[in-house]
Amino acid sequence: MSSALSPALEIADLSFSHSGREPVLEDVTLDMRTGEFLALIGPNGGGKSTLLRLIVGLLRPCSGTLTVFGKAPGQASANIGYVPQFSGLSPDFPATVLEMTLMGAAEPCARGGIWGRDRRARDRAHAYLEILGLTGLAGQSLSSLSGGQRRRAMVARALMGGPENFLLHPDSTSPEFPFLLLLDEPTAGVDAEGTFCFYEFLGKLRGGISIIVVSHDLFMVSPFFDRVAFVNRRLTPLSGPSLTQDALAALFGRHMHACPVADMQHALGGRHLSGCSHPACAAGLQTHNPEAAAGGGPGSALGRVDGEVAG
């Protein structure tokens, strides 16, 4: 399979706008090696989710090129797992969590679609549900789940489309086929401990499958990423995997300041550490420091950040 040698993702000069309106994405260029773990950050409305929807083929670029494992987005569906931010899932649909998870392995066929429901597939689905902390909920109806539980079930569903042995035993084998996992705010509504465990699990998969995660609460889990890029209409790669305070300041401006932890540190003469996960910090953008906005480099994106709320 030639795609094993192809990069996970090649995007060149990609632009997108909804019919005739302001461009959502402009001149986006991104190359991603197979096995890389990439994080996308940026303000709401900055185009992160749109970029994911372009990668999975739900939207078509207005200009530029995009390939996934060397294939056009629509042709690579077997190699993509997707957890959308706002799902098209009907929460009232009469189905169990297990049934929904199994559907993640759906493949097109003459009968519209087909996926395994046998013992092996069910064991696998149970294993993913367990990894995601949903043990015991497999037989529950979807409508009985909380929002956070439903999101985790959707992650299990996305994993069902991936390489079986590798996802269950990341240490033992290399994946059977190239796989790109796209996660749009996968841990929204999940508590801090659950979030950390989830990224720890994703971190184990690094090198085998390729992962892109879009999120706002990445601060405490940044060591797991290979790379971080900032998306706000344009894509700006950040150097190195970790989100330092300087990088954050360059992106969002220094706060003026609604974080009690940082205020205390400031009062004690310390620095505001990058590990601070206080919601006000994670939410960013309380007040901008003009000095950071004038900083150039990645900070040039700031002009567009103003007036938008990063949630």
Partner: peptide, 9 residues
């Protein structure tokens, strides 16, 4: 169940 996910697959 989920038209969008079905399309992605």
């Amino acid at each position: 169940l989920d038209k969008e996910f079905a399309a992605v697959r």
